[in-house]
């Protein structure tokens, strides 16, 4: 990755992070923690790797993304609005009655959302199905999947892990947003999922582990995953829950928290002051 491209991605991530803090702050409550831990990976995918088509969201032969941790929808909405799937004004309608931007991703509400998610574990299977359909149709595009670490408690994740490897879905590139926290506390205290690398390896996936806020590391991992010939890919992202919002970062109560709009605006100002 060129230095300039890296700078652009970092600037874009800051913009997406601010838009996300703003939309949740405007509403006053939301899943801020898990939304902010996936800002970098979604930015990397949507601004570098994915062939999307804002003018034709239903186009079949494009890359698709299933955000299985559907509660991180607000981050994806910021990106989709920025890319022109819908007007940016919609971001202030988040979760309001009649909105097209519900807390959890809904493919029938929001242009650019590729799968309805919200019941944890289910995006895993859906992404597998989309990857299978692509293969049947000879569509040479990737399916990207983002699951949570708490979500990895779900049995369906491991049913899917078995199936994707069995069907050698090398067109499926998955990420675990390993921010180490779930609703009730630290993942290792609530329901330990370690050794995550060993688990995905044992299931037959191509496993990589990188810093989920580092574009260079993640970019190289995605490039390697794209070249994999037989195995589905799992890229475990070490992330920080609530990353970049001073009032939420690393706080155990940040899964779904009240956010004062002035505080949200202050967080955005602080982000602007960073280099």
């Amino acid at each position: 990755m060129e230095k300039q491209e890296l700078k652009q991605l970092e600037a874009k991530a800051k913009e997406i992070r601010k838009m996300t803090i703003d939309s949740i702050g405007y509403l006053g409550v939301g899943h801020i923690g898990g939304a902010l831990s996936v800002v970098e990976i979604l930015t990397l995918l949507y601004y570098k790797h994915m062939d999307t088509s804002p003018e034709e969201p239903k186009r079949k032969d494009r890359d698709k993304l299933v955000l299985s941790k559907g509660h991180a929808g607000p981050t994806l909405y910021s990106i989709l609005a920025d890319k022109g799937f819908f007007p940016k004004e919609w971001l202030h309608t988040l979760n309001k009655g009649g909105t097209r931007l519900p807390s959890h991703c809904d493919m029938n509400c929001t242009p650019g959302i590729d799968m309805t998610t919200g019941s944890l574990g289910q995006g895993m299977s859906a992404a597998i199905g989309i990857a299978m359909a692509n293969r049947l149709d000879g569509v040479d595009k990737k399916v990207y999947l983002i699951i949570g670490d708490g979500e990895s408690n779900e049995g369906q994740i491991w049913e899917g892990a078995m199936a994707a490897a069995h069907y050698k879905l090398n067109n499926l590139i998955a990420f675990t947003d390993y921010n180490k926290m779930q609703i009730d506390g630290y993942v290792h205290e609530i329901m330990n999922i370690d050794d995550l690398n060993a688990k995905w390896n044992a299931f037959g996936w191509f496993v990589q582990r990188v810093n989920g806020h580092d574009f260079l590391d993640m970019d190289m991992a995605v490039e390697r995953a794209k070249r994999e010939l037989y195995r589905p890919s799992m890229i475990i992202l070490d992330t920080i829950k609530g990353k970049g919002a001073f009032f939420a970062e690393r706080r155990l109560d940040n899964h779904n928290m009240n956010v004062n709009y002035d505080t949200a605006k202050e967080a955005c100002r602080l982000l602007d002051q960073e280099n």
């Binding site: 299977s125 859906a126 199905g129 359909a133 049995g155």
Partner: peptide, 24 residues
């Protein structure tokens, strides 16, 4: 066009939904 998903009904139905999202 036949997928045996093993003894994993929840995943099977979820994958079916994904196949449908992919136009099947």
């Amino acid at each position: 066009r036949t997928f045996n998903m093993g003894v994993a009904e929840a995943n099977m139905v979820g994958v079916a939904a994904g196949l449908s999202a992919g136009g099947k």
